[in-house]
Design a protein around this nucleic acid. Structure first.
Lengths: 246, 246
DNA sequence: TGAAAATTTTGACAACGCGTCAATAATTGA
DNA sequence: TCAATTATTGACGCGTTGTCAAAATTTTCA
C-alpha cells in the first residue's frame, strides 16, 4: 500500500515534470513544435514512457490549461474576497483579468488552445469535465458578486436578464478585447491606441447603464480602477507565486 | 500578351478551384485534415502543382480568410447603407455580425484560423496585408456610422474616447460573445441560455449609457432589433448569394 | 510544319511526427 | 533467489510536408 502510493507519487511527479517541459515549448514555439519525441528527449526518457502519462499531446495541452485556469480561479477568488462595495469587487475581478493576461501571459496563451476544436475534441472526457467545472466556478465567483449587488439593492436586474447573463456581457467584452489585443493584426493601425483604457471606459458605462450603485463618472472610475489595480497587485503577485511553487 | 493573360486566367481559375476544394475540408474536418496531398487528389493533380499555387497550406487558409472577410465587409456595407437613424444603422451592423456568424458559419469559422499564430506567422506579407486592410475597412465602415452620429449630435464622445475606441467596445463584446458561444464548453451549463439576447441587451444598455439618441428601453430595443434583423435579412441573403456566385 | 527552347506537371524522395507494441529491463513478492 | 508482475524502450508502419530532377506540354521562331 505504502509502496503503491510511492510509485503513484513518482508517476505524478513525472507527470508534472512533463508539463513543466511542455509548457515553454507550447507557449514559446507553438503547438506544432510540441512533439512527444521532443518532450521525451528533453526529459531523457523514451517516447513510449511519455505515452504512459498522456495518450497524445492534446491531452498535455488540456492538462496545462487546467493548471492555468486554476490560477485564474485563484485570482478571481482573491479579487472577490476584497472587503469593498460589490461594484468595486466586480472591478477587482476585471483587474484580475487584466493581471492574468499581462502577468500570466503564458497561462493566458495556453487557455486559448483549448478553444481549438482539434485539441478539444481529441482530449479525454475527464479533463474536459475539469475544464468545464473550473469555468463554471469562475463564472459563479463573478455571478455571486452580482447576486450580492442585487441583494444589497445596489443593482436591479429585471426579468430580461439573469445574473449569469449579466456576467456574460462582461465576460464577452473582457475576453473579446483581450483576444483582439493579443491577436488582431495591428489595432493601432485602425486607431485603437489604448485598448485596455477603452474597455475600462466601456465597462464603466455599461455598469452605469445598469445603474449599479454607486454610479461613477468615467474619470473617477478610471482613477479608481488604477488605484485598485495597484493596491491589489501585491495580493495577485502572492497568489501567483504560491500557485507556481505548489 | 493575349496568350499570357489566358494562361494567367487559367492559373487563377485553378487557384479558385483549390480554394473551393480546400474550404469544406478545413471547415468540416479542421486544419489537420487539410493536406496538400488530399487537395491534389481531389482535383486530380499532382501535389507539386498545388505547390505552384500555394507554398503551404497556411497560405490556403489565409486566402480563404481573405474571401471570408470580403463577405463580412460587404454585409457591413449593406447594413451601413440602410436609410435610417445612425443608431439604427449601428444596430444593423450588429445584425450583420449575427447574420454572418449564423448564416455564413463556414466563413466565420475560417476567420478564426488566422488568429492562430502558427498560421499567421507562416503566411506571406502580401496576404497578411490584405487581411489587415480588410479589417481596417470593416472598422472604418462602423466608425463612419459613429462619426455620423457625433456630427448629427445624437452622440457626444468626450475626450476620453475616439470613435474607433468606441467601436472597439462593440467589436470586443460582439466578437467575444460569438467566440464564447461557438467554443465555450456549454454556456448553458453555467446559466446562459440565450447568449445572443443577452448581448443585445448589453449593447442597448451600453448605447443608452453613452446616451446615443434616440434612447431605447430594453424591450423596445429587442423588438426593433428583431424587426430590423428580419427586414434586412433578404438584403443580406442577396449580398451573400452574389458573393458566392462571383 | 517542325524542332529547339521555355514552361509546367509529375511523383519519387528525404525528413519528420504520431502512436503502437513486442522485446527488454526493472521491480515486486514469496 | 527466482518467478511474476510491471515499466521502459525504441524500431516500425503510416501519414504529411516540401523539394526537385525528370517527363510532358506548350511556346517560339525559322
Amino acid at each position: 500500500m505504502v509502496e503503491l502510493t510511492r510509485k503513484q507519487r513518482e508517476m505524478e511527479r513525472r507527470t508534472l515534470e512533463i508539463l513543466r517541459v511542455a509548457k515553454p515549448i507550447l507557449v514559446r514555439e507553438g503547438f506544432h513544435a510540441l512533439s512527444m519525441d521532443r518532450v521525451a528527449a528533453a526529459m531523457e526518457y523514451a517516447k513510449g514512457t511519455i505515452y504512459n502519462h498522456f495518450p497524445h499531446k492534446e491531452e498535455i495541452v488540456l492538462a496545462l490549461a487546467i493548471e492555468s485556469m486554476a490560477l485564474r480561479r485563484k485570482l478571481f477568488l482573491a479579487a472577490a474576497a476584497l472587503a469593498a462595495p460589490n461594484r468595486v469587487r466586480l472591478m477587482a475581478i476585471g483587474c484580475a483579468c487584466e493581471y492574468y493576461t499581462q502577468h500570466c501571459s503564458d497561462d493566458f496563451a495556453i487557455e486559448q488552445w483549448i478553444r481549438n476544436v482539434n485539441v478539444w475534441d481529441k482530449s479525454s472526457a475527464a479533463r474536459q469535465d475539469l475544464i468545464r467545472r473550473c469555468e463554471g466556478e469562475c463564472m459563479s465567483i463573478v455571478s455571486s458578486v452580482v447576486h450580492s449587488g442585487v441583494v444589497a439593492s445596489e443593482l436591479v436586474l429585471n426579468h430580461a436578464l439573469t445574473a449569469e447573463e449579466f456576467v456574460f456581457g462582461f465576460w464577452a467584452i473582457t475576453f473579446g478585447s483581450q483576444i483582439l489585443t493579443a491577436s488582431s493584426p495591428s489595432l493601432a493601425a485602425v486607431g485603437i491606441l489604448d485598448p485596455r483604457r477603452a474597455i475600462r471606459i466601456h465597462c464603466c458605462t455599461l455598469l452605469n447603464g445598469y445603474r449599479w450603485q454607486p454610479i461613477m463618472q468615467t474619470d473617477e472610475y478610471l482613477n479608481r480602477v488604477d488605484e485598485l489595480s495597484t493596491s491589489i497587485q501585491s495580493e495577485f503577485d502572492r497568489v501567483r507565486a504560491e500557485h507556481y511553487t505548489a
